[in-house]
Amino acid sequence: MSARDPGTHEDDPSLARAIEDLYAVISFEEGGDPNWQGLRALFSPHARITRVTPEGTDHMDRDGFVAMTQSLLEHGAYTSFYEFEVARRIERFGGIAQVWSGYETRRNRHARAALGRGVNSIQLIRDGEAWRVLGLLWDETNARPDLDLGAIAQRGRA
């Protein structure tokens, strides 16, 4: 298994696909935008998004998350964003799932090393045939480029 391949530790491929979609919709190339339409489709209208930073915690609904991201882009905080999963642990019961997803951010797709590494806590709910993100929580305070995420992958494989 390569470092970028989180593997699939879940019997429902649509759940793995939802997590892959999450990283896909928030990533974008230089000068572009996140996939706003895909993001709105993936996130439940009831979703809560929580971002922990050294300066404070941002509590957002789906529209608030879009507004924060648009503001960051408008003010030039990011000109591209590339984040992918490097480790995953899933706990699922029926139509609800909780995912501990280790991520790595790079300055672009061609970068050789991490801009940052951290953990996304993702809660999903089954909505018909698809899974939708009901909660997304991450901690930028403790994210750093050399963060070891092996423990999450190890637990995921157990």
Partner: peptide, 8 residues
């Protein structure tokens, strides 16, 4: 010159 991370 751009680098991959702030520490870099």
């Amino acid at each position: 010159l751009h680098y991959d991370s702030v520490p870099a």
